[in-house]
Simulated scan of single mutants.
Amino acid sequence: MVESNQDIAEYLSTADDVEQAILNLDPNSHLARTALEYAINNSMTNVLDELIEKLLTSDNEESQSWAEVYRIDREVVKGNLSLIEATNKLTYMKSEAKELNALRKIFQLYNYHDLKYFEMVSTLSELVQAEIEELVNGYIKKSLISRLGLVMQAVYLHLNDLEKCRNYGNIILDNAVTEKARGVALRNIANSYTLINYDIAIMYFNESKALFQKLGQHVELTNSQRSLNFAHCYWNKQENFSRTSPYNAPEEIQGYAYYLIKNKEYTQAEKLLEQLQTNITNNFQLGFQYYYKGLIKNCEDYFLESVTHFKKAGDYYYRNLPLIELKKIGVNNVVLDALRV
């Protein structure tokens, strides 16, 4: 007989078929509720969707509430619900379950992150952290610690608070319930060193890549390789540009343009950036777009435009890129200090 307080990771460790074991769980049980988190962490999308439906139609009110939180998150992923709509729905949900309330707030933090409300996430995270610390030790608590760490790593990188970014990275490495989370944490730590220390950045990027290669996580491997390529270019380290996927994402095209710029192939780089211009979808990408254009033309106006878009994106870390170039071309320190705010 399954104990109501049994840990999901312990329970599934003895299962011959993990996915089937999850789907056979009593939807009214604690295990079924915690299995939602296990399924999402392990990219079992079909299992997650089926389990959500089972819990939504169960006889247990708490199971229904858990399923509704995950359903809202899935609707955002599928593009059926806006970040603001999802955040509002999560705000007005009521539950007595401490674990669910902490999870609900973490989903809200992720939404605020995607909306570029980085300062708000930083402020609210302290309350969420306190709630997580009160939870009983087990799979859910470790997963929530890891989830919070991942969003806070990204937030503090954007806010240019690199020490906190790295601290959260180490927390993830100590608490991650999946190797994928460890790989992302390693990449974020590497990113925090990219503009500061080449050797340390490359070490962490390579650790991240090795993990994703082992896991067969192709998309994450692509992201780590792209960041590694950027670090090589930034530090003027010559290396063949390596693509790990056939995708033509804006970030990938911009990265290749950066490689061309560093190899003084300005005409080809400029052509790539011009072709890409209409496909840029956010201020963060525009920040890089104008930074690269500024490098080609050594143009103050382009670097100022880059600063403007990074500022609109709420980013302080990569805003340093155009600021460094503006300093090189002689822009007054008083002006540079004003642009950093």
Rank of each mutant, 00 (worst) to 15 (best):
L56R: 10
Q64E: 09
S63R: 03
P27L: 14
L55P: 03
A39M: 14
Y38I: 15
K54Q: 14
S43K: 15
A39V: 15
E37H: 11
T57Q: 12
T34E: 12
N80I: 04
E62I: 06
A39Y: 04
L81E: 01
L25F: 12
E61P: 00
R71P: 02
D26C: 04
G79F: 04
M44N: 09
A67I: 07
E85W: 06
S43R: 15
E68F: 10
S58L: 07
A67N: 09
N28F: 00
I52C: 05
N28Y: 06
D49I: 09
K54H: 03
V47S: 03
E62A: 06
Y70L: 12
L51W: 08
T87P: 00
L31E: 11
L25R: 07
Y70V: 13
V47I: 09
T87V: 05
D59T: 14
T34G: 02
S43D: 14
L25K: 11
D59P: 05
L48W: 07
N28G: 03
N46I: 14
S43L: 03
D26K: 03
D59R: 09
I72A: 11
G79P: 01
K54C: 02
Y70A: 04
Q64P: 01
N46H: 08
Y38M: 13
L25Y: 08
W66D: 05
L36Q: 08
T57D: 11
L83Y: 13
N24C: 06
P27K: 07
R33D: 04
N41W: 05
E61I: 05
I52Q: 08
T45K: 10
T57H: 10
A35M: 08
K54R: 14
Q64L: 03
H30C: 06
S29A: 08
V77K: 12
S65F: 04
E37C: 03
G79V: 03
L23I: 04
D26Q: 06
N42R: 13
N60F: 01
E68D: 09
E53H: 07
L83K: 02
K54P: 00
I52Y: 12
E37N: 12
V47P: 05
L25E: 09
W66K: 13
E37S: 11
S63W: 05
L25D: 11
I52A: 07
G79S: 04
D49M: 13
I72F: 11
K78P: 00
S29W: 00
V69M: 11
A67W: 06
S58H: 06
I40Q: 14
L83S: 00
K54W: 01
L51K: 13
L51F: 06
N80G: 15
N24W: 08
E68L: 14
S58M: 08
V76Y: 06
D59S: 15
E75D: 07
S82W: 02
I52W: 02
L36M: 13
E68S: 10
L81K: 14
L55A: 01
E85M: 07
H30D: 09
L81D: 01
L25S: 09
S58N: 10
L83T: 01
S58I: 08
R71L: 09
N41R: 12
L83H: 14
G79Q: 00
L55D: 04
L23Q: 04
L56A: 07
G79I: 00
T45N: 12
E85F: 03
L55N: 02
N28Q: 06
N60Y: 04
N60C: 08
L83A: 00
A35L: 11
L56P: 04
N46G: 14
I72G: 03
